[in-house]
Design a protein around this nucleic acid. Structure first.
Lengths: 198, 198
DNA sequence: TCCTAAACTTAAACTAGTTTATTTTTTTTC
DNA sequence: GAAAAAAAATAAACTAGTTTAAGTTTAGGA
């Protein structure tokens, strides 16, 4: 069975955890909506309710909140083959505290909250898919926040550079700083220090 | 159908998200193992593999890691009606980086990793239960780490005191500090400051 | 119930990371 | 491809939270 490129991508992602028949694939795809946004546009803004769970087929996004002093805190970057939304808002139906903004022109597939129950009803295997997906997200979330707590900013910077060089290449240093949890000035200091010692 | 007190508790917890027949309840309970540990004993230690997911029926626990300088970082407290384990180790089968230690004599029900697949096979509804459970854990994890990032230690302290007074009553200030992410001395300073201002 | 270890308090010196301000470099836009 | 805007670098003054150290209170085991 032939699908378009973006649909192949999402089916490949889902098929890591569950096997779908051709009919189920078709059914699943029929629930998805295509969304394209330009660089600097928002997929979600604080105050909005997250009505979709998005799968990224092309591009790059950042998810962040803004604190009382107006500072951005980036909680994740999203690139091809990853999922993004504000889970808290998506589930609870309450307004989000997050912004999801495109760092490049971006293409996504959106699963509407309104179709979520229908999906589980028609293809119960998806309970399993999401059980595993959320279990793994939880796992990496726990790992990350544990590391963040026990490492200095310099260690966090070095670790991110080593583990996600493909993301580093696509983002501004300013955004890296907002993810690491320091000021851009401090990143400059770290780089200077590393240059001197090596 | 009659079950013992602890089994009633876990069934009530599971029944928030899925309905079980009496037969399914019995089957589920037959997979669980009762575990009792004394204050200061460990449910899990760094280096061990987490072979169980635990439901707390009585008592209080802390989950923490120890960094290179020997400092404890508490990531959660567990009390009655909550679940605990190191999800990362439980899923991956790799050794854990966490300690789970009893702060009081504690009674638990343990679901073995070895029975996990059997559970999903025999009662597929549990895929749904865990999908929802993990989705909600993820949600509160995201909320918490977002708040921690954008608040000062003082704000985090005040918030915890307000939201979890029933937990505060059962733990040492030292452990509260390790959860908030500051030294016990700094907690003393915060208390002093609050006393002065009010 | 007493004794001892652990927990908590207070305070002064210290440090990782921030703030503010200026200059240089890179990116965007027309 | 030049002008304007945004991002990055450098450096000095500053602050939230740490460290060290000494004294006080509390808890729990023999």
């Amino acid at each position: 069975m032939e699908f378009k490129e973006s649909h192949n991508l999402i089916i490949k992602n889902v098929s890591r955890f569950i096997d779908l028949t051709d009919l189920e694939k078709q059914k699943y795809i029929s629930l998805l909506k295509e969304v394209n946004i330009k660089k600097r546009d928002f997929l979600l803004q604080a105050g909005d309710v997250a009505r979709y769970e998005y799968f990224i087929t092309k591009g790059c996004l950042k998810t962040y909140s803004i604190d009382e002093e107006g500072k951005q805190h980036i909680s994740m970057f999203g690139i091809e083959d990853y999922w993004t939304t504000d889970m808290a808002s998506f589930i609870s139906g309450e307004p989000s505290h997050f912004f999801v903004e495109a760092l490049e022109d971006t293409e996504l597939l959106a699963m509407p909250r309104t179709k979520y129950d229908l999906l589980f009803q028609e293809i119960p295997k998806f309970e399993r898919f999401y059980r595993i997906l959320y279990q793994r997200s939880l796992m990496s979330y726990i790992r990350r926040s544990n590391l963040n707590i026990s490492m200095t900013a310099e260690e966090r910077y070095i670790r991110f550079m080593e583990r996600y060089p493909h993301i580093v290449r696509r983002i501004k240093q300013k955004d890296l700083a907002a993810y690491i949890g320091v000021t851009p000035e401090f990143i400059s200091m770290i780089k200077l220090k590393i240059k001197k010692t090596s």
